[in-house]
């Protein structure tokens, strides 16, 4: 049973049964703004979704859709001019974590939520050995130095770094790009977090390494049983790795559902356009590659009604009215009044 909810939870008919355990991550009508010279920039508006325990949820969307803002909001790392203006983020059974003090938030990070970023080199300190860094991130544990190192070796073995004992004494530059990303994954999962946030972890890797990293991530996720929020703009990777997915555009969730529901039956015009643009779906050479004409709306002055209307081929005057979400099939929700015509 899916526990994905509509973007306005209260208005939706729920399909989740009452006994489902609390999801690993629950985001409820989250809005985030940034104060800029040109006015208030509404980066996220009414974002609602949840990541069930033990599942992998993918987030897709192009630059400027709010993926990074969302991650930073979850981690409590918004820039100084950013502010959560509404909604709540709950982690497992916890209360709203947006209300926590920086100190309390710090206790969560690395222990209950951890992150793997895009650039593996940037995630590791170049002047400390890998062993030292892996020992350092266990600073909360009471283990002895030797025990910590043994755990590091175990973790490196799990991410298939050959000869891990020797590798502990080496520095990041002595590892290849794919290995560095595996070390970063090992470090992120060391404390067996409830939630792993993976922000485009394979973008910097070659195709063969990308596939190997995805398989490794899936394997470790199943072993540890954590939930994963996986951000990517690579639709192929999302299709292969994730159970559920969320499509974001200009700071809103425009479609959500299981990976199969969305790839089989994209129900928001933006999702459909995005899928059409992926050259991976073309199995022969075409004269003209599909694109999405137009640009993102100004987030300081968001359009009334549908956020995609200016670029949408199906737009009509009613799209200027406030949008309600439509449930296409149980658990599959699109924020578009013409959903039926998209799918037709």
């Amino acid at each position: 049973m899916s526990s994905i909810r509509g973007s306005r939870g209260a208005e939706m008919t729920m399909t989740t049964d009452q006994n489902t355990p609390a999801p690993a991550l629950d985001i409820d009508a989250l809005s985030v703004s940034f104060a800029t010279d040109g006015g208030t920039l509404h980066a996220l508006k009414d974002v609602s979704f949840s990541v069930p325990k033990g599942r992998i949820t993918g987030i897709v969307g192009e630059s400027g859709c709010g993926k990074s803002t969302l991650i930073n909001a979850i981690l409590g790392l918004l820039a100084d001019n950013g502010e959560v203006t509404g909604g709540a983020i709950r982690l497992g059974e916890s209360a709203d974590i947006t209300k926590l003090t920086p100190r309390q938030m710090r206790d969560l990070r690395g222990l209950q939520i951890s992150t793997v970023f895009q650039d593996p080199m940037g995630a590791l300190n170049p002047v400390l050995s890998v062993g030292k860094q892996m020992r350092d991130i266990q600073y909360r544990s009471n283990l002895s130095k030797r025990e910590k190192d043994a755990r590091s070796v175990e973790m490196l073995r799990q991410v298939r770094i050959p000869d891990p004992e020797k590798r502990l004494t080496q520095y990041p530059h002595e590892f290849s790009g794919g290995m560095k990303q595996r070390v970063a994954i090992a470090m992120a999962l060391m404390m067996r977090p409830q939630l792993l946030i993976a922000d485009e972890p394979t973008t910097a890797l070659d195709a063969t390494l990308e596939v190997a990293t995805i398989e490794l991530l899936k394997e470790l996720q199943q072993e540890i049983g954590c939930a994963v929020l996986f951000i990517s703009h690579h639709l192929g990777v999302i299709a292969e790795l994730c159970d559920d997915m969320i499509v974001m555009y200009a700071g809103e969730v425009v479609e959500q559902g299981s990976v199969r529901q969305i790839f089989r039956n994209p129900s928001h015009p933006y999702t459909r356009a995005l899928l059409d643009c992926d050259p991976a779906r073309l199995h022969e050479r075409v004269k003209h590659l599909p694109t999405i004409p137009g640009t993102l709306p100004d987030l300081r002055n968001r359009p009334k009604g549908c956020v995609f209307q200016a670029r949408c081929a199906l737009a009509k005057p009613e799209c200027g009215q406030p949008v309600t979400s439509v449930e296409v099939t149980p658990g599959h929700i699109a924020r578009c009044i013409r959903t039926n015509e998209v799918t037709a």
């Binding site: 690579h234 192929g236 299709a239 790839f263 089989r264 991976a280």
Partner: peptide, 10 residues
Amino acid sequence: LLSANPEPDP
């Protein structure tokens, strides 16, 4: 290399 290409089809 060709077979490593993830395809957008679950």
